[in-house]
Amino acid sequence: MRADRASYRKEYESWIGSLAAAGKLVGGEALETEHTAPATVRTAADGTSTVTDGPAHAGDETLGGWFIVEVADRTEALELAKSLPAPETVEVRPILESA
C-alpha cells in the first residue's frame, strides 16, 4: 500500500467510515511514517537500556496506525480485518483487560 497509497486511500477511508457507522470503531490514530523513523528501546534484566533506530522487528512492512474496535469475539475482529478492501496487512490483538 505504501507504493500506491493515494489510489487506495478512498477505499481505506470508506472502510473506516463503515466501522464507525456500525458502532464498531472505538478509537485509533495514524502514526507518522513519512519523516521520522521509529526507535526501539530494549531494557535488560539488569536495568540497562539500549536505543536503536528502526522498528523492533525488521521487515518490509511498517506499522501505520492502530484502531480499537468493539467486537463480540476474535472471530468478529478477524472478519472486520478481512473486510479491508486494500492490499494491507492487519494485525489483530486483544486489549488486556484489567481485573
Rank of each mutant, 00 (worst) to 15 (best):
S49C: 13
V41S: 00
A39E: 11
A44D: 07
L25G: 05
A30I: 00
G23F: 00
S49A: 15
T43C: 10
H35P: 05
D46S: 09
G28M: 01
L25T: 02
G54R: 05
A30E: 15
K24C: 12
V26Q: 08
V41N: 01
K24Y: 10
A44N: 05
D46V: 01
E29Y: 04
D46F: 00
A45I: 01
P38Y: 00
E32C: 10
A30V: 04
K24Q: 13
L25E: 04
K24L: 12
G28N: 03
A45W: 00
T33Q: 14
P38S: 07
G27Y: 05
T40Y: 08
G23S: 07
T52N: 14
D46H: 00
G54V: 04
A45L: 10
A44G: 03
L31T: 11
K24N: 08
A37P: 13
T50M: 09
A39D: 08
S49G: 13
T40R: 05
G23W: 02
T48P: 08
G47D: 05
H35E: 15
T52R: 13
V26L: 06
T50Y: 06
T43N: 09
G28F: 03
E34P: 00
S49W: 03
A44P: 06
V51T: 12
P38T: 04
K24A: 12
